[in-house]
């Protein structure tokens, strides 16, 4: 049963000749209990897609069915409530509130739900126990290491027992040991039944995922099943490439990965004003010419 169903979803910023197409008719179906990794270079639309799936943003066009409910046009109060009850966010920069203790941070989503202080502290404590941070519950976030902070923010995402966890580069600010810890936490959460959507720049991370989606310029360019425990095929290419690492490879970063991906499918319908589409095609022709 699919929990997330996107159909021809587009997101366009700006207007006139300053239009930016962040998402271009993305169609996607995610089943319950999947562990999906999203990869792609910067500005490929991953975060925009996550924001729309997480109901922080609205699509410009297209339909979004979340948990059998059409949610692409509902009012902000209902969005906030769905967000609170079915979605948990984990951010790259942790986003814990510095004025609150670890326990209060974790209990905050429950407070918005109206759970009593005593009960929500108990639930939050259990969550902290689960991520191994129970002994730090009266600490403030600036007293924790980055790995510990991320564990706390995962606990916060989990506290409402959401069906979907959206993690936008959760390991982006972590060292490799903490990354492994955090990813294993995600795997364990996935095992208990949550759907996990994870954005990452690190090909290594894809080995925790059961499905890897590659994005480029606002479209999905590749969607492949991946065996848990193995780095995905295309990510592997990138890894192999980067074994002979030079300084330039470092600079290129993920875009090396994109070299390994088949060219963007041009058959998909495009939304954009006619004038603009001409422009882009001309550009493309020039680009092809130059390549020749």
């Amino acid at each position: 049963m699919s929990i997330i169903e996107l159909k021809d979803l587009s997101k366009i910023y700006g207007f006139g000749d300053a239009t930016t197409v962040a998402l271009e008719e993305v169609s996607l179906s995610i089943q319950e209990n999947e562990f999906v990794a999203f990869m792609g270079p910067s500005a490929s639309g991953k975060s925009t897609l996550m924001n729309i799936i997480g109901l922080l943003d609205r699509p410009t066009y297209g339909n979004y069915v979340l948990n059998k409910r059409i949610v692409d046009r509902i009012r902000s109060t209902r969005r906030a409530k769905i967000r609170r009850d079915t979605i948990g966010f984990v951010f790259q920069s942790f986003n814990l509130l510095p004025r609150l203790t670890v326990l209060e941070n974790v209990a905050l989503p429950l407070a918005y739900k109206g759970v009593s202080l005593k009960r929500r502290n108990k639930i939050a404590e259990n969550m902290l126990e689960r991520v191994g941070m129970a002994d730090k519950k009266y600490f403030y976030s600036n007293q924790l290491s980055s790995g510990q902070t991320q564990c706390v923010s995962i606990a916060r995402a989990l506290v409402n027992s959401p069906k979907i966890i959206i993690a936008d580069e959760p390991t982006g600010n972590l060292d490799s040991v903490s990354s492994r810890l955090v990813m294993e936490l995600f795997t364990e959460i996935n095992r208990t039944g949550s759907t996990i959507l994870l954005v990452t720049h690190n090909p290594e991370i894809t080995k925790y995922a059961s499905r890897v989606i590659y994005m480029h310029d606002g479209s999905i360019v590749l969607d492949e099943e991946s065996k848990v425990g193995e780095v995905s095929t295309h990510a592997k290419k990138m890894v192999r490439k980067s074994t002979k690492k030079t300084f330039e490879d470092d600079l290129k970063g993920v875009s090396t990965l994109m070299d390994a991906i088949p060219q963007k499918n041009n058959n998909t319908k495009k939304y954009s004003p006619k004038k603009k589409s001409k422009k882009t095609t001309r550009k493309k022709k020039n680009y092809v010419k130059r390549k020749k």
Binding site: L56, S76, T77, A80, R83, R84, D85, N95, P109, N160
Partner: peptide, 15 residues
């Protein structure tokens, strides 16, 4: 930023 975080974790506008 705090407002953004609060909204992300489920605070409504009224809250």
């Amino acid at each position: 930023k705090e407002i953004g975080i609060r909204k992300a974790i489920g605070a409504t506008n009224t809250q």
